[in-house]
Design a protein around this nucleic acid. Structure first.
Length: 872
RNA sequence: GGGCGCAUAGCUCAGCGGAAGAGCACCGGCCUUACAAGCCGGCUGUCGUAGGUUCGAUCCCUACUGCGCCCACCA
């Protein structure tokens, strides 16, 4: 890349101009390309970009801002960084979207055929995926695009097969008829994690089975399931029913006879204490059924219609049947009670929204217990850290209570289960480099999307081949993800990674972040109308502003409220930086000459250099703890409030002195700005790059070394004097403002006691910052201002060329007096308490005593001044 | 039903045992040669309620109230 030293910046800027071609330049220069043969230490983050199902979501912009900040800092620190983008999930969402499109076109996937359907999904992804990737690049992510990987490509398919085969051979995968969560809309099984429970208003219907003495009343919210009942269960110790246990009863409408059984599961306190048992359509009943060897007739087809009951209800939709069955029972006088509405919790499909059914079906499962133990132990032993640590508890709660994982999906998009069936019902699991026997038929089902996602940290690096990338970059350094996904994805990666990679967990640290919310802290939702389009903000405010805003709100595990005002504020911050750099360039700030030894510097120089050192270590600490909000705040505050508002103003005075003093100031100015730009680069890559290359003439900030502390001792005395200057200047400005003096109006004044306060050298600075002129010969002060500083009192006599506003001055002094009196009262209260003096640490007592002395003299001084004012 | 978290300025949030903070909003004054996308000054709080521990509590403990989240098979 051509080195070009821009010593001038345009007076104004727009983010679009700055971003311009920078990103393409960085990519072209190979800055983001990770070298597996490098001897630098590795820093790896692997993450899939968003599901390609719509536009770039603000949540992804957020996650990418966090990750890119981490990566950019490490690169500057000399790490070989790899941000490897897995391009996509084998996403159920895309499947559903395409199905919806087909429906709108009056067709469906079955009519279309499997191959055409898959082709259709690919088209969809190519079209929308390209758009989203283009949007994501605008964030400035330092992704290694040379390694981009698609889930469905050959390599990853091999990884999925390899993992399946290993688990299968280790007897960790099995096929069984089980109750699964069933989505009648998707006609597919769902994992527990894809089912969300919602309270709904249903009905609780109590009905009588049997007649006369043996009649028994049961209740249900799903009347239609009674068609599949194979028993009535009561608690073994329930004396009301002991005489009935072991007898049979007729199941209404069907004519079948079913037993009355005793089972511990039944709660005798609830309802009548008797429960109908439908093993094929309810998880509890399934367990009861297994314990008692009950038949398990399935009475619903895969679309949720009643089937195979041999009754008039066959063919009805489940909700239709619910009413029909109820009314049929009513006609027989069997409905004893109805409660409507009855609020209860019902599982819904997260993908398609409708209530799920439990359905017996033949599915593939992963035996979780041994894998979960691996995943749990990695965190328990401290080998993998979770940030924030409080979240570890949730991790354990989950990992210790996992059920076996149903991994088969009756979908057409995704990795197919690598099992083939022979003509005589034989079954073989075919590994990645093996061929299925001729004429055998592959299992129709595809794998749950989390199966392939669980392989992400190593499948994307070429596993099962032993690649150079794997050797260099596995395990990854940190996983950055939202706490909402901890239980889906993280745990699966932990299990699969540790299992497949010889016991090495897939990352060192799991850093959890929160969700992006609107400016009132409310959850963003499309229906709520409060979701934001990051694209709009990118267009209007630029990537730097968006990134800084997102990071500024991000503490570990906490949600981030974001509104347009904040983004605007971040852009203003960029403008501030821009202008500060323009000032520095215009005043000859230097970065190539060494900063003089502290002995040759002014208090202001030493003060800002000390602050900059502190800033560097604060930022490092915060980065290490993923405390983005804290480090963004520290940078913002230092840059704006300390560097721009104070140091730059003081620097103007020093540069005005000319000579060696001016040169030293230029060096300090350049050094501090250089430091700030380096530290800010991970947060605001574009504007800092533009400014830093202008300031230094170097090639690029992307590959510049990270800022380091100077190693020089801090000078607390210089800091104290600068703080005194700040206090003095602020008090003088306050007085001027209260007196209605325009800020620009020059006022002759005499400063005395400055020397006593140790501020003699700062007299010119104080005058410059407060627009006070040297007194002329005919100086007649008309007002006096006293400012108490830590090191002494400064008296300012001003020639206001007129009468002062006595009322304003009285008000000002009265306010200060009230504050001093409150302070005195507080100190007296403490010191008057013998317990405090006895038990509090000596340094605290000394501090309070000193404060009391200050307060007392302030009161004295202010009282005298008030008394000296002319009567109103 | 179980678990976790949060209640601090008008709004969004820091602070977590010894003088209540920031950003935005608001009020007043300024086009001061880096910056009006700015500068200077100012206002604003019984730190959710009630107890307790402590010389001292916004900070620790208990209860309560109100929000939020996660988990869960109550027919």
């Amino acid at each position: 890349m051509p080195t070009q030293r821009h010593r001038e910046l345009p007076p104004t800027w727009t983010p679009a101009e700055v971003e311009g071609a920078l990103y393409e330049q960085w990519v072209a220069a190979g800055y983001f390309t990770a070298d597996a043969t490098s001897d630098k230490p590795p820093y790896t983050i692997v993450i899939p970009p968003p599901n390609v199902t719509g536009s770039l979501h603000i949540g992804h912009a957020f996650e990418h801002s966090l990750i890119d900040a981490l990566i950019r800092r490490r690169r500057m620190q000399g790490y070989e960084t790899l941000w490897l983008p897995g391009m996509d999930h084998a996403s159920i969402a895309v499947h559903a979207l395409v199905e919806r499109e087909l429906h709108a076109e009056g067709t469906n996937r079955r009519e279309l055929g499997r191959e055409a359907f898959v082709e259709r999904v690919w088209q969809w992804k190519a079209e929308y995926g390209g758009q989203i990737l283009a949007q994501m690049r605008r964030l400035g992510d330092s992704v290694d695009w040379t390694r981009e990987r698609f889930t469905m490509d050959e390599g990853l398919s091999r990884a999925v097969r390899e993992q399946f085969k290993r688990l299968y051979d280790d007897d960790l995968i099995y096929r069984a008829e089980r109750l699964v969560n069933w989505s009648p809309t998707l006609r597919s099984g769902l994992s527990d994690a894809e089912v969300k429970h919602k309270d709904v208003e249903g009905e609780l219907v109590s009905m009588r089975y049997g007649d006369g003495d043996t009649a028994i009343v049961v209740a249900t919210t799903r009347v239609e399931t009674m068609l599949g009942d194979t028993a009535v269960a009561v608690h073994p110790n329930d004396e009301r029913y002991t005489h009935l246990v072991g007898t049979e009863i007729e199941l209404p409408l069907t004519g079948r006879r079913i037993p009355i059984i005793a089972d511990e599961h039944v709660d005798p306190e609830f309802g009548t204490g008797a429960v109908k048992v439908t093993p094929a359509h309810d998880p509890n009943d399934f367990e009861i059924g297994q314990r008692h060897g009950l038949p398990m007739p399935t009475i619903m087809d895969e679309r949720g219609r009643i089937a195979d009951t041999g009754t008039e209800f066959d063919g009805m939709d489940r909700f239709e049947a619910r009413v029909a069955v109820r009314e049929a029972l009513r006609a027989q006088g069997r409905i004893v009670a109805e409660k409507r509405p009855y609020l209860h919790s019902v599982g819904h499909s997260e993908r398609s929204g409708e209530p799920i059914e439990s359905r017996l079906s033949l599915q593939w499962f992963v035996r979780i217990a041994p894998l979960a133990k691996l995943a749990g132990d990695k965190v328990r032993s401290g080998e993998v850290a979770i940030s924030p640590p409080e979240m570890a508890k949730r991790y354990f709660d989950w990992v210790d209570n996992l059920h076996d994982w149903c991994i088969s999906r009756q979908l057409w998009w995704g990795h197919r289960i690598p099992v083939w069936y022979g003509p005589d019902g034989e079954m073989v699991c075919v590994g990645p480099d093996e061929e299925a026997p001729e004429g055998w038929r592959q299992d129709e089902d595809v794998l749950d999307t989390w199966f392939s996602s669980g392989l992400w940290p190593f499948s994307t690096m070429g596993w099962p081949d032993q690649t150079a990338d794997l050797a260099k970059f596995y395990p990854t350094s940190v996983l950055v993800t939202g706490y909402d996904i901890l239980f889906f994805w993280v745990i699966r990666m932990m299990m699969f990674g540790t299992y497949a990679m010889d016991g090495v967990a897939p990352f060192h640290t799991i850093a959890l972040h929160g969700m992006v919310r609107d400016r009132f802290g409310k959850k963003m939702s499309k229906s709520g109308g409060n979701s934001v389009d990051p694209q709009e903000w990118l267009d209007e405010y630029g990537a730097d502003a968006l990134r800084f805003t997102l990071l500024r709100g991000a503490n570990p595990g906490t949600d981030v409220p974001i509104g347009e005002e904040q983004v605007e504020g971040s852009r203003r911050f960029g403008t501030k930086l821009w202008n500060a750099t323009r000032f520095a360039l215009a005043n000859g700030a230097t970065v190539d000459t060494a900063v003089p030894d502290r002995a040759d510097l002014t208090d202001a120089d030493r003060w800002i250099l000390d602050k900059a050192d502190r800033l560097v270590s604060d930022v490092d600490t915060s980065f290490d703890g993923f405390e983005f909000a804290r480090l963004a705040e520290a940078l913002y505050h230092f840059t704006w409030d300390e560097f721009c508002d104070w140091y730059v103003e003081l620097a103007k005075v020093q540069i005005g002195e000319g000579g060696a003093r001016a040169d030293a100031t230029r060096a300090v100015l350049g050094h501090v700005l250089d430091t700030v730009l380096r530290l800010l680069h991970p947060l605001m890559p574009f504007v800092t790059e533009r400014l830093w290359t202008a300031l230094t003439g170097e090639e690029s900030l992307v590959i510049a070394p990270w800022a380091a502390v100077s190693g020089q001792d801090a000078d607390p005395a210089a800091t104290a004097r600068i703080e005194s200057v700040q206090k003095l200047v602020t008090e003088i400005r306050r007085f001027r403002s209260d007196q209605g003096l325009p800020p620009t109006k020059k006022v002759p004044a005499q400063l005395s006691g400055v020397d006593g306060a140790g501020l003699l050298a700062h007299d010119p600075a104080v005058r410059a910052l407060t627009r006070l002129d040297q007194p002329a010969d005919a100086f007649t002060p008309t007002a006096t201002l006293e400012v108490a500083l830590a090191t002494g009192t400064v008296i300012v006599r001003l020639d206001m060329s007129g009468v002062i506003d006595v009322a304003a001055e009285r008000k000002r002094l009265a306010k200060d007096l009230a504050a001093a009196e409150k302070e005195l009262a507080q100190c007296d209260a403490k010191l008057g308490n013998p317990n405090f003096v006895d038990k509090a640490p000596a340094d605290v007592v000394a501090k309070i005593t000193a404060r009391r002395v200050t307060a007392t003299s302030e009161i004295e001084r202010l009282t005298a001044q008030l008394a000296g004012l002319p009567a109103a």
